[in-house]
C-alpha cells in the first residue's frame, strides 16, 4: 500500500531529479518494461498513432543518453526547470500490487543565453495532468508507467526535449 503522502514524496523526489538534471538516477526509477507516454490525444491508441513521446525502456535510455552524452544542440544551453507536483491521488490497481497515482504538475522552463537570443531567456509554463503506475520492486517503488497529458497537448509546441 501507498498513502497519498508517500506517493507525493515519491513524485517530489522524481521532480527533483529532473530539475537537478540527474537524468541517470531518474531513468533508474523506471521498471524494465516501463512506458513513458506524452500523448497529443490521450484517447488514441499510441501504437497506431503518433505521440509527442511514446518511449519503451530502450527508447527512454536513448533519450537520457542523447541529453547527457551527445553533442545535442537543443539542450545546449540546457533547460532550467522548476516543477510543482500537486493534487495527488492514489488507488490500487486490482490484483497487481501496483498503485495508480494521479497528480497535476506545473513545469516552469527556461534556457538562459545572451541578449536578444530567440528562444532563450523567456520562462514558459507547462501544465499537465499526470498518471503513474508504481510497482514495488525489491522494496522500492518503481515507475512502470508514466503519462503526461499537457494542457495544450494538441497545440503547437516549442521544443520539449528537456523531458516534460
Amino acid at each position: 500500500m501507498l498513502t497519498a503522502s508517500e506517493a507525493e514524496r515519491f513524485l517530489i523526489q522524481e521532480a527533483r531529479l529532473l530539475d537537478e538534471r540527474r537524468f541517470d538516477e531518474w531513468e533508474a526509477l523506471f521498471t524494465d518494461d516501463a512506458v513513458y507516454w506524452v500523448p497529443m490525444d490521450p484517447d488514441r491508441d499510441p501504437t497506431d498513432s503518433v505521440s509527442i513521446i511514446y518511449d519503451d525502456r530502450k527508447r527512454l535510455h536513448e533519450r537520457v543518453y542523447r541529453l547527457t552524452r551527445t553533442p545535442v544542440l537543443d539542450q545546449n544551453p540546457p533547460s532550467r526547470t522548476v516543477r510543482i507536483v500537486a493534487n495527488v491521488e492514489v488507488e490500487p490497481v486490482d490484483g497487481t500490487g501496483e498503485q495508480r497515482v494521479r497528480c497535476n504538475q506545473l513545469i516552469a522552463e527556461m534556457r538562459p543565453g545572451g541578449p536578444g537570443q530567440a528562444g532563450l531567456n523567456s520562462p514558459r509554463w507547462l501544465a499537465a495532468r499526470c498518471e503513474y503506475r508504481l510497482r514495488p520492486v525489491d522494496g522500492q517503488w518503481r515507475i512502470a508507467f508514466k503519462k503526461v497529458v499537457l494542457l495544450d497537448s494538441d497545440q503547437a509546441q516549442y521544443n520539449l526535449s528537456f523531458i516534460p
Binding site: V50, I52, E62, R66, L73, A118, L120, Q157, S161
Partner: peptide, 24 residues
C-alpha cells in the same frame, strides 16, 4: 510511426536540433 516519433516532433531526437538552428 515509432521511427517517426524517434526523430521528429517537439521531443524527437532530430527535429529539435533543426529548430534550435532556426532560432539561432
Amino acid at each position: 510511426y515509432r521511427g517517426h516519433e524517434r526523430f521528429y516532433g517537439p521531443a524527437g531526437f532530430g527535429a529539435p536540433d533543426d529548430i534550435e538552428v532556426f532560432t539561432e
